[in-house]
Nucleic acid binder design. Sequence first.
RNA 1: GGGCGAUUAGCUCAGCGGUUAGAGCGCUCGCCUCACACGCGAGAGGUCAAAGGUUCAAAUCCUUUAUCGCCCACCA
Length: 900
Amino acid sequence: MSRDIAKAYEPRQIEPRWAEFWVKEELFQADPAKPGPMFSIVIPPPNVTGSLHIGHMLEHTEIDILTRWHRMRGYNTLYLPGTDHAGISTQRVVVKYLADQGINYHGLGREAFEKQVWKWKEEAGGEITQQMRGIGESCDWSREKFTLSPEMSRKVREVFVRLHEEGLIYRENRLVNWCPVCLTVLSDLEVIHEERPGHLWHIKYPVAGTQEFLTVATTRPETMLGDTAVAVHPEDERYKGLIGRNLLLPLMNREIPIIGDTMVDREFGTGAVKITPAHDPNDWEAGRRHGLEVIDVMTDDGHINANGGPYTGMERFAARKKIVEDLKQQGLLEKITDHVSAIGLCERSKTIVEPRASTQWFCRMKPLAEPAIQAVENGAIQIIPENRRQEYFHWMRNIRDWTISRQLWWGHRIPAWYCGKCNEVIVAREEPKRCAKCGAAELKQDPDVLDTWFSSGLWPFSTLGWPEKTADFARYYPTSLLITGYDILFFWVARMAMLGIHFTGEVPFRAVYLHSLVRTASGEKMSKSKGTGLDPVALNEQYGTDAMRFCLASMAAPGTDIVLSEDRLLGARSFANKIWNAARFLFVNLEKFEEGGASIEALAGPEVSAKAPYAWNGKVPLIDRWLFARVAATVETVNDALTNYRFHEAAQSVYQFFWGDFCDWYIEWVKPELQGADRGRAAVAWRNLFAGFDAALRLLHPFMPFLTEELWHQLPQAPGAKSIALDAYPEARAEWKDAAGLAEFGLIQEAIQGLRTVRSEMKLDPKKKVAAEFASGNVKTREVIEANRAAIERLGSLTELHVLAGKLPPGDGGMRSTAEFDLRIRHIVEAADPGVELARLKKEIEGLEKAIASKEKQLGNETFRSRAPEKVIREMEETLAGQRVELGKLVARRKALVEA
RNA sequence: GGGCGAUUAGCUCAGCGGUUAGAGCGCUCGCCUCACACGCGAGAGGUCAAAGGUUCAAAUCCUUUAUCGCCCACCA
């Protein structure tokens, strides 16, 4: 950078280089043999065919900040990357891709289709991991995993077989959620409920052998084709007598019984419920209780099947329409009322899910859930933010069995084989040659695959080598932390907790931090499919990845969603530019200093920094004491904030430090000293400046890795030191903490700001230097000001500052008073408007009076004095005394002004 | 039907029991001061959604209400 420095920071010139460097140098490869405390994190595997969206950007930024922060603090750190095969969603993408080319995937056949998906994966599958490299994630790429790799497949089969042996996995015919578009069964979680206005159709069923009718109310008339009973409440006076009689099912002309069942709510509808065991979960149960026939009237793709009489072949909603029409025509439709009901939609296709009886594989969850509940209860797994614990508990305590089979081709094939001869079901790790029961060789593997979440549920231990006892597993499991979105708490987090504990005997992660969702300005979840997402890759190009990372971090308060705006990004970009320009200042001025024979090696570098701050004439200058005290305070704030996942607090703290302290005060203060005639003094100033800057870079690195890496390389480093990422995070060294230094410098800041305010109020030309007076009754205060007079004069644009004892009498010019000191700039102001000054005084006096009154009231209160902590009382008294002094001064000033 | 969260400066949000409530952006005034106009300096702007309550002390804890949002749920 040093000789030809761009005036503005241009991330595009810098980021790709370092992104490549980090990968090529394999800087983040973990070594289980290395000593030290451990920090491990496995990535929530993104969809292999996906691309980086804004949610990933946030998640990966948070993961990478914590990873880099731990690594710099000496932890043996592993950040394990990988991707998910994402069964249903990937299959949908490829099916559509083929369809666009006029290819029907069914026609292709299973094997050819699978080949297509693998081909797709090879082509598109690299994108997201490539993007992750591009944004500088400090992953160990040598350990990258894919949920559908042969290696992972073996682990999946192992788990399946063991669960089956334990009786936790079973196959059964029951009512499941069916998606007629995806053509597969779905788990309960994959069905999203949405309230929609609909109707309640009141249909008259003729009572067999009479002229009477029984009216039933239904929201889904088309299911009547499969009705096998009508239920009424056994104690319902209206219908009691009908129980046991038969009804003639309209349109189908089948006789069905009237049954009594307490499931019926007498208040709802007509109090009579049609029972369709094949297409409603309640009815399914009722059917079992009463031994009713199950008549499935639907095809896989949501049409009426051969059981549907005249409606056979019709699409389900077309059939609904026709059935209603026909009923109306036959005079069997009593009425239609409006009714809002929650309907189930397929998470992927948004199709209305059809409840349907089907034979599927299930996993018994209760026994798995119990230990996972306890793990969170007893703190073995910590969930942050805390309020998500409740959701976790609620779901886990009401958990139902998990439908794990899917009628897809893309996924882990279920390791079950059926004997063509004796129908024996064989579940095995390897494909069996013969039936274990009858010895026949006619075995056929179950065509279905496992729910994607089944394999991702094993992720923390499968990726680390389980069931083998690998070094990685021993060293990095249980993982330290999981960072993921709260939207997959049940899908993924809960299942990992259950399976992890069950198979390893240990929790899969010590803590789960559930990050926010990034929303659009209108509050919607950002989504690419809806076109409401911001493209992080494009934004990174535009503003810089560091700016994006910093922006997200500064907004990532736990528990609240993020609304990202370009305004905020602009602010973060400015911050990056500010850092760049601070560096530019250093190097540009260093050149001038170097002309006198100094070299950067003598002024900067790890050995020089280690001894900072440097003294001059036996004393560390106040400004340097102050700077390092601020470094220590910032380090403490950042460490504390990151320990508690308070990214926004950490980001805000480094921002304030770098911009507010380092640039606005420190650099401005030391400017003249750096180029001063006294080269010894200047060398000390340079060393302290570089040491401060070096600490700042390391402090900032987890948030803004590219920029800090670039600048770090411009400074002398230890031989063999490769990257700031492997350097040490600054420590809050005890010798840097300096309360007195902070207080003294605070006083000076207040004085300078006071002077500037007065100048501004007096509308003085910024270039015009004037004389000023400073007065304080405190000897120590006067000494501090006197000792730093030159800098105060410079930063306050003064010709000279007179330091006086006591207080300033009222007089001409602009005045400013605090409890500690008085300031005045004497100046004849031509068009000075005393009204403006009076108005300001009035406002300040009123504010003070209000504050004083409230304190006097409190302090005068006996209960307060007896109950409040002593510290609070003492502080309040001190403040009050100060405010009274200040008020006195302001009132005197006002009086003098009015009289003049 | 249950549960959770939000409501604070024009905007986006921090703060969650103890001084006159903060930040970024925007706004006003003044500055191209030899690192940075993606900048520098100085300001204006809020009865912390409403009403009760607890407390010596409430934006902060409790209750109710209103508005908005989310999650869970097999009332046909």
